[in-house]
Each structure stands twice: as C-alpha cells, then as structure tokens.
C-alpha cells in the first residue's frame, strides 16, 4: 500500500530524514516511534504530498506521490501535528468543506460528515464555532476531517497529544475500531500508545530507522534470554545456590533481600526447573513471574543508547 524507498530530506543544511526505506501493507496499523526531531512528521508530510523529498521515492497504492499527486491524495486522510481547523467555521460546515475539497460526491456528503461526527463523538457540538472548542475537541475535529472522506489510508501525526487521559483512551479505542477498514500510520513518542494501538513499530532516530518489526518481536529483541522475577520467604543461600545452577545465566539481588531477578537460558522449561529447585530446597516460594522487557527499554536502548555509545 505504502512504499518508501531511500527517502532523504534536507531542510537547507539540516538533514531531517536520512535514506529511509520501508513498506506498509494494506490494513496494517503501524506506529512511528521516535524522540523529538527524529523526522517522523517530515516522513509523514512527504507521504501525504505536503512536502517534496530531496531524493528518494514515495509510492502510495502503486502511484508515485509526486507524479500522480491527485490520485494519491484521494486515498489519504491526514492529521498534521497542528489540527488544520478554521476557528471561524462551525464544526459541521468545516467537515462539509473538507469532504467537498477531498472530492466526496454530493449525494454521499451528508452521510460521510455524519459518520465522521459520530465516530469522533462530535455530533453534540456540530453547530458550535470551532473557536469555542477546547483543545481536545479541536484535536477530535482534526481527526474527523481526516476521516471524513473515508480514505483508505489514515496518517495521524501524534493523534492524542494534548488530550486528557479519558480522551486519550477514547481516541485509542477509536483507532482500534478503525483497524481493518483503513491502513493506519500514527506517530508518537509515547510508548503506551504504540503498545495500545499498533501491530508494527518503526523506530526512527535522527532521521534513520533503527528498528522495524512487530511489537512482539521488538519486545524480545533485547536477547534470546529471558528474565524472571523470583520472590522467596527464606533467602539464606539462595543467591549463591542460584548462581551454581546450569540453566541460570545471571542473578541479580533486588532491593529487598528475598527478591531476585534471574536471567535464564530458555524460559519454557527452565522456569519449571527453577521452581522445583526453590521447592526442593524449601526456600518457600512466594512468587515467580516473567519480567517483560517492555518497549520502553527497547526504545531507550535503540535511541538514547546509541547516543551514549558515540
């Protein structure tokens, strides 16, 4: 659906996107993840045709964005970083205008606008002046205008920024509902967002892709080994005893003396062995659970980790 090859963007001397390539299939929900200034927005602008790349190719649905811009733009609904709303227009009129601008046929106009209002729960404020709406509602109008032409592809640049927690979860719920109907790209620096909505992540740092994979694969990326959290009642000799075990690679004593983080070779069977060892030596098992190396760790390792290596 979306194919980007060797994309590069220079703002004057400033390198914003550095030879990026990736592909997104129809129906996928992909998150662009990266710290400030990574080049997420720039990449999105290039795909939507708002910005020309310095070099490289962006294709959408088989069309080159810059050779067939009209065809491409018909397929895309785009929410920029700042919601593109006219404060002196009414919500309904604005969505109606965007729908016409996007070439929605006049018979379908009303239905499409109503659909966008409904999905973003704006029906109650449709006759309000956008100027009088709160920031969160304006953001929702921004999402509604991306939806109003019922595009195949949705490109959302930080869709939940500036929203209160309830609205954030509503928007995530909405994105989850839209899954399957649209191909979705969203950008964020908030990790839970990716975890909550995306199937695949593309991590960008300083204009380069540092990792791209499914969420599950990325979380396991750290190593083939797994960490488990172990808590016992009687901790004498546990630390030394664990170190002797053949399937244990590393043991860390947590703050509390009876809690340990044990790195084992292969989680499937070794956890059983570990549990049996604790029971056999009557250390008193309280708790044993896998420590998820969460995306946050992966993200920090991949982006900020790099910096410290230099």
């Amino acid at each position: 659906m979306i194919k980007v090859t060797d994309l590069k963007k220079l703002y004057g001397q400033q390198l914003a996107v550095d030879h990026i390539s990736f592909e997104i299939k129809k129906g996928e929900v992909v998150g662009f993840l990266g710290p400030n200034g990574a080049g997420k927005s720039t990449t999105m602008k290039i795909i939507t045709g708002a910005l020309a790349p310095t070099s490289g190719i962006a294709q959408v649905g088989g069309f080159d964005v810059f050779e067939n811009p009209i065809e491409v733009k018909k397929k895309i609904g785009y929410l920029p970083e700042t919601p593109p709303v006219y404060s002196d227009m009414y919500v309904f009129d604005f969505l109606n205008y965007v729908a016409q601008l996007k070439g929605v046929e006049s018979q379908k106009l009303k239905a499409q606008v109503d659909m966008a209002l409904e999905k973003t729960q704006l029906t109650g404020v449709k006759n309000r002046l956008i100027h009088n709406l709160s920031k969160g509602f304006r953001q929702r109008v921004g999402i509604a205008q991306a939806l109003v032409s019922d595009p195949e592809i949705l490109i959302l640049d930080e869709p939940t920024v500036g929203l209160d927690p309830k609205q954030v979860s509503e928007i995530r719920h909405l994105i989850n509902q839209l899954k399957g109907y649209h191909t979705i790209i969203l950008s964020t620096h908030i990790l839970p967002e990716v975890e909550a909505t995306c199937e695949r992540v593309i991590i960008i740092n300083k204009g380069k892709i540092v990792a791209q994979d499914s969420l599950a694969a990325l979380t396991k990326l750290r190593s083939g080994r797994e960490k488990v959290f172990l808590s016992v009642r009687r901790s004498e000799g546990v630390f030394e005893g664990l170190k002797q075990l053949p399937f244990v690679a590393q043991v860390e004593n947590s703050k509390e003396s009876y809690q340990f983080e044990v790195t084992i070779q292969n989680q499937e069977t070794d956890v059983d062995l570990l549990a049996r060892w604790v029971l056999d030596h009557s250390h008193g098992l309280i708790e044993i659970k896998p420590v998820q190396s969460n995306l946050e760790e992966v993200f920090l390792n991949l982006t900020y980790g790099q910096k410290t290596e230099i």
Partner: peptide, 9 residues
C-alpha cells in the same frame, strides 16, 4: 491549515 490544502486532491 495550509497543509490541508496541500494534501487535498
């Protein structure tokens, strides 16, 4: 809002 115009067909 210029981006809206630039990304419309």
């Amino acid at each position: 809002t210029f981006d809206l115009l630039l990304t419309s067909p």
